[in-house]
Design a protein around this nucleic acid. Structure first.
Length: 271
DNA sequence: AGTATAACCTGTCTGC
DNA sequence: TGCAGACAGGTTATAC
């Protein structure tokens, strides 16, 4: 479920909790987690190494151990905790603190990747623009809009732009007053500038609120210490079908775009 | 090259 | 109370 703001929140929390510490042991009890190595290979390369930094690329969480990286994707229900949970799939025991990877739906992935040339190895290969990085200029963003794909589909394409998922795509499109099904190449300069700003703005505001927790069901996103995020209280459209648009009062509409639930205001976001 | 569909899993919620 | 069906923040293989 996590998108960029949730992953970034976890990154910061993990950095504070375990960066700089040596990894004493790593235990994996869900074989599907490991994508490109065996558990013994993982242990051979990482155990005894110091965690140099916690990094993030799009929705990937990167444990930087110097020569090697453990690259984790949380997919739908993964999260990290300082306590063992009901669906713990991996434990990383650092010198002074253990961290637990919990993942109800077992979709989460871990790749062991060489740090040198990391961008040439899956899963970091072929990723798009980092929306909170210096590279996210209006020119480079605008260059993605040359084709007639539906704009929401484009925003969700991790090969074009990383980190934006279903929630924040809906929210950014509403803030910029763009209909989710608008062909990308038919968005005018004014709206395109508004959308560029909205993507940055929504993601930053969501990070400031420590991400979004939709409910209290098992597998819902939590921060490292188990707290809920806060940005769900700021949603303008996501999950608000039938309720009034905060800008104009019109009933928010739910539809399906790119096989995903989509929410928009039919008045603020005209085709 | 695009788009749709099913699949990967488990859990929750809704309606009958 | 039970039970079938829909739905869920993500991605990918496969088939048009």
């Amino acid at each position: 479920m996590p998108e960029l703001p949730e992953v970034e929140t976890i990154r910061r929390d993990l950095e504070a909790a375990v960066a700089g510490q040596r990894l004493n042991a790593i235990e994996v009890c869900e074989p599907r987690l490991l994508q490109n190595c065996t558990l013994s290979e993982l242990q051979r390369h990482l155990q005894g190494q110091r965690l140099r930094a916690m990094e993030r690329r799009g929705k990937f969480l990167i444990f930087n151990f110097g020569q090697r990286l453990a690259v984790v994707h949380l997919r739908m229900s993964g999260w990290f905790s300082l306590e063992p949970g009901t669906h713990t799939r991996m434990v990383m025991r650092f010198e002074r603190q253990a961290v637990y990877f919990d993942d109800v739906r077992r979709f989460g992935t871990l790749h062991l990747v060489p740090n040198q040339g990391r961008q040439d190895h899956p899963p970091l290969r072929g990723l798009g623009l980092e929306p909170l990085g210096a590279e996210f200029t209006f020119e480079r963003f605008g260059a993605l809009f040359e084709f007639p794909r539906e704009v929401k589909r484009l925003l969700l394409d991790q090969g074009k732009l990383v980190g934006v998922g279903n929630i924040y795509a809906c929210e950014a499109l509403h803030q910029a007053k763009v209909h989710p099904q608008t062909p990308a190449c038919r968005i005018g300069l004014r709206k395109l500038r508004a959308l560029h700003q909205a993507v940055k703005d929504i993601l930053q505001r969501a990070i400031d609120a420590h991400g979004s927790t939709l409910g209290d069901a098992v597998g819902d996103y939590r921060t490292l210490d188990g707290a809920q995020g806060g940005f769900q209280d700021c949603f303008a459209v996501y999950g608000r079908a039938g309720r009034p648009c905060l800008a104009c009062g019109t009933s928010i509409r739910r539809s399906v775009v790119a096989q995903r639930s989509t929410f928009h205001c039919p008045r603020c976001q005209r085709r």
